[in-house]
Amino acid sequence: MAVFTQVSEDDARTLLQSLDLGQLTALRGIQGGIENTNYFLDTTQGHWVLTLFERLTAEQLPFYLELMRHLARKGIPVPDPQADRTTGAILHTVCGKPAAVVQKLRGTSQLQPTPRHCAAVGRMLAQMHLAGRDFALHQPNLRGLPWWNATVPTVLPFIPAEAAQLLQAELAHQNEVAASAAYAALPRGPIHADLFRDNVMFEGEALTGFFDFYFAGVDTWLFDLAVCLNDWAIEHSTGAHTPALAAAMLDAYQSVRPLEAAERALLPALLRAGALRFWISRLWDFYLPREASLLTPHDPRHFEQVLRQRIAQPFCLE
């Protein structure tokens, strides 16, 4: 979430009129994130989030928006894209960019989660995976292995030799994992792929929703779980595994969808894959940034640290 494209109040009013969402009372740019332009829209009818898509194309976007609509109809607490009152379209155009409007979820992000928060995320993640099984559209995870292979040569010149060696070695390892029969056996479907602490809302210990589905794609459910464990169940200052948080998330997830034998065997490798994916993307955003108002790129060294921890101390399910 950042502001690459400036949206005027007149632009917002025109959009709100087409969606029949009331009169504009406030328009505020959202700081954080690095992909899209985001604004809070407050109106006489409620509170909304406007997203202008800076990289995703109009051809790619129906997957994300229709997935959110599908999950919302299945009872998963996610933002439901708002439709044009005349055409019924949920993909709009603002300032020449493809755009969407969704309701703002209640609550706040929990940046210091307890085991209860982690359990709530694990349980809802499993429910979301099962709810997406009959989703009709298909789009690969656009930040998956092909993107890693294409992006690593671009970022290598910017990093120290030791880090470059680790990056190349781990990429080679993940290519081997992805070519294995065990990996091919992993169950898969639509995943969120970016379910960090700041993409989940809570009121107290009650989970009120998942949001920011714009990295979603069809991939292994285990990768989605690994991404969550790498953010929710670690000590952020060191990247080290936090057993109580991980156990809470895994137990709750498996109470809804028990992991298969292939998933249990490959969880250590997929935890490394999740760390690698975000190390690569943060290197790319840090060293090859785009100009944006309010843009604050994340420090890529965090996920280098997480990856080193995952290699040095592989996680094992008991």
Rank of each mutant, 00 (worst) to 15 (best):
A185E: 15
P160G: 12
D134M: 00
Q139T: 02
A193Y: 03
I191T: 15
D231K: 01
A247H: 13
N149Y: 00
N230C: 09
P190R: 02
I159A: 03
L156H: 00
L166K: 00
L166G: 00
T238R: 10
A179N: 14
A163M: 10
R197Q: 13
P190Q: 07
G132N: 07
L207M: 06
D219C: 08
F210K: 05
P160W: 06
A240W: 02
A226R: 10
E205L: 08
M128K: 00
D251E: 14
N141M: 12
V152T: 10
L225N: 10
V155L: 07
L250A: 06
A240M: 03
H192Y: 01
F135T: 04
G189C: 10
S255T: 10
V177E: 03
M249K: 03
G217A: 11
H192V: 01
N141E: 14
I191P: 02
F223I: 03
F202S: 08
Y214V: 00
Q168S: 14
E203F: 00
V177W: 08
D219P: 01
F135R: 04
Y214F: 07
A252Y: 01
A178K: 10
L166E: 13
Y214H: 09
G239K: 11
I234C: 08
A184N: 09
W232G: 07
L137M: 14
H129M: 02
A244S: 14
Q254L: 08
A226N: 10
E176R: 14
T154Q: 15
F215M: 06
V177D: 06
Q168V: 03
E203I: 09
F135G: 11
R188P: 00
F213Y: 08
D212T: 01
A185L: 11
D219T: 06
Y183K: 01
P190S: 12
L222I: 05
D219A: 14
L167E: 09
Q254S: 08
E205D: 15
T151R: 13
D134A: 13
